[in-house]
Design a protein around this nucleic acid. Structure first.
Lengths: 184, 184
DNA sequence: AGAGTTCTTGACCGTTTAATCAAGAACTGC
DNA sequence: GCAGTTCTTGATTAAACGGTCAAGAACTCT
């Protein structure tokens, strides 16, 4: 009944997300988005709406692809220590891209209430998953504050990664969380 | 020997810093900087160089004005608990502006190596001050990792503040840090 | 095969951006 | 009061920005 789309919508979103992640919202120009997605500007607007709509879709994809798996893994963790191993994997290279949600919180949230809410909600499942694991672990005291603190420290390491902080430095954050929480 | 400046350099820097803090680097247009500083564009360029130079000066002022006093206060803290009281003051309203250094780390550091280094170094004195206080406090174990974790959690709360996270939520982070670190 | 619909393309538009510049103003030292 | 220097002003510029649009391509259904 009509001309079919010549692109894979998810692949396009992947490209857009990657660019926003690297360059931020303002830093990702439409010209660069064209290149990153392989799509012409008109097709991009036809399929996703304007730049902000595309950003919203990219944020949603990021949560689904980068945060949700970690939440599931934490849910399945047998104890608090195992949960920390998921958030702060040992001897993993530092990803300087940091976290797209944190970048959006810093850059866009102050001038966009809807994106602020998305950023606020994005980390709630992780916090709740940590609460549940900590509450079930007799070695961890006060599950709720501990979960809140770990999430804050996690977000902190993502900002530090953007600044190029070394792996050793970030590992120290993880060590601090481990030694502080696990009273065993 | 020449026409004198008609403005107070520090007041101008204060205005520029405030605007960068609220709107970020890209978000602070030169027109808005003119208004925020009360200076004409030509005067701004004559006195400070280009936009990036002005941003560097604003970052420097921010460290001096917003971070250094906290570092001094932490240095003077009698124990770990008192140090945490400085970083996480009870019943203080949340400043949604967050932290200019963290915003610069998220937005600018990935594409500007010099600013990345500034962001990396800006929090080192705070971390070292915490290390010293923690090391002298028999109730705190492993001063270095604990200090690193507290700084990460602190930066995390600044990002959360940008997203509009509530005071209760942020207080929980502080509670978590207290209960985790102070084994008394 | 023809009509109808959607998708793709690349040129195009108005706006906004950071940055510049010539001209005049304000001051100091002689 | 004159020369010399720096500061201020506002118009100006070239480039880059997000967004639009007309024309043609590609497909389905009848």
């Amino acid at each position: 009944m009509a001309r079919p789309r010549s692109f894979d919508e998810d692949a396009v979103l992947e490209g857009a997300m990657a660019l926003f992640w690297r360059r931020g919202y303002d830093g990702a120009t439409l010209e660069a988005l064209d290149r990153a997605t392989g799509l012409n500007r008109g097709s991009l607007y036809n399929a996703f709406g304007d730049k902000r709509d595309l950003f919203l879709a990219a944020l949603s994809r990021y949560v689904r692809q980068a945060i949700s798996p970690a939440v599931e893994a934490v849910r399945a963790a047998p104890n608090g220590s195992a949960a920390l191993d998921i958030l702060f994997p040992l001897d993993a290279p530092v990803d300087r891209r940091g976290c797209l949600i944190c970048k959006a919180a810093a850059e866009v949230a102050p001038v966009d209430a809807e994106i602020a809410e998305i950023a606020r909600e994005a980390y709630r499942p992780l916090r709740e998953a940590l609460e549940a694991v900590f509450a079930a672990d007799p070695d961890v005291t006060s599950a709720k504050p501990s979960a809140a603190m770990v999430v804050a420290a996690y977000q902190g390491t993502k900002i530090m990664a953007n600044a190029g902080v070394s792996a050793e430095e970030i590992t120290k954050v993880a060590d601090g969380a481990r030694e502080a929480l696990i009273s065993a």
